[in-house]
Amino acid sequence: MEEVKALGIDVGSTTVKLTAVDAQGKLIWHHLEGADPRVEDQVDHFFNLMREHGFDGKELPMVATGYGRNLVEQAEKKVTEITCHATGVYNQLGHGGTLVDIGGQDSKVIIIGENSQVVDFAMNDKCAAGTGRFLENTAGRLRVPLDRMGVEALSAAEEVAISSTCTVFAESEIISMIAHGVEVNPILKGLHRSLILRIVAMIRSVGLVPPLMLSGGVVKNPAIREMITQELGEQVTMPEYPQLMGAYGAALIALKNSNRA
């Protein structure tokens, strides 16, 4: 293993991700696990893991990001996930553009400039309508496993319009459709459409700058990718590890800061 030069940690609401980069900023090691409410303990556990992999994390520069970033005492600097995602994706894909990150709790659209800087961004509003949670909750009603949702939705030839974007209302709308004998897959497709339209509205509110890039856990869902392309007429690209981009960006920022020091 090449020499680890910097670390990035992304303490999200559902998962925690740790990445390590070498002197060139290459992602050489990563770890992902469910979030523990005791962040300090989890970070200690991460340092033990690193020792097992032959390097001492405590000696390395580290940047923390994500909602729990302020709880990571070892981190020399805390940077928001917006900037970290932009840095991570820019370095991974080698260009700027529009990054759409759809997470469980949060969705964001980030316009990345030519020098990896954040030009503008938008986030979903208070309700869950524009996040992965919307799909999870409503699809739960349909008894479709999370990792099958996208495939099932795409297999539907028909699509029903879901007018409610409120999760609660959408659920009652679905119940009524089922009661009227509507098939599951067309409903699933409609649900995806509803989510995508919210995301597209966010993209339009900041103004699409091609190319379009996707990250976040939800983008593993093929329907999301395909329907965004349909709506915007833009092909999408994805980094190799869409879930790690925040942590990777954090590591890159740590590396850059240590070189500067």
């Binding site: 940077v79 928001t80 961004f121 986030m123 208070k126």
Partner: peptide, 23 residues
């Protein structure tokens, strides 16, 4: 940023302001 007088300061709001300052 949008707030409701009865909500505590949310993480998302902090992130939005933080990201804006980083820009």
């Amino acid at each position: 940023i949008e707030i409701d007088l009865n909500d505590p300061l949310s993480n998302q709001i902090v992130t939005r302001i933080g990201a804006f300052l980083e820009i």
